[in-house]
């Protein structure tokens, strides 16, 4: 099973690989969340709600069900090595 945003620890980084759902993909792509985007989970909402994430430096929120459909890698494709927890390269 590949990792999704939902599986990420707070404060850790991942890079978007792919989307499991074309509708969610369409929405996120139009907002500029692309394969290769750096995602950092900032915190989770109260009442076990959604996720507050930073994508390429832009603050976004999403539901858990949405986060589960966004697949990630924890290896920075640009560096070719795992940099879990490190600050994102700015773009």
């Amino acid at each position: 099973m590949p990792l999704s945003i939902f599986d990420m620890q707070e404060g850790s980084n991942g890079w978007v690989l792919d989307f499991e759902d074309d509708l969610i993909a369409g929405r996120l792509l139009s907002m500029g969340v692309l394969p290769g985007s750096v995602v950092k989970v900032i915190r989770r909402a109260p009442f076990s709600g959604g996720l507050y994430v930073k994508v390429d430096g832009t603050n976004m929120v999403m539901r858990c069900s949405e986060a589960k459909r966004i697949l990630l890698t924890t290896k920075d494709p640009a560096l070719g090595s795992g940099v879990n927890g490190q600050a994102p390269a700015s773009g």
Partner: peptide
């Protein structure tokens, strides 16, 4: 229509 949360948080 489908319901989303996905949105940008403005500064």
């Amino acid at each position: 229509s489908g319901s989303w949360l996905m949105m940008e948080l403005p500064s």
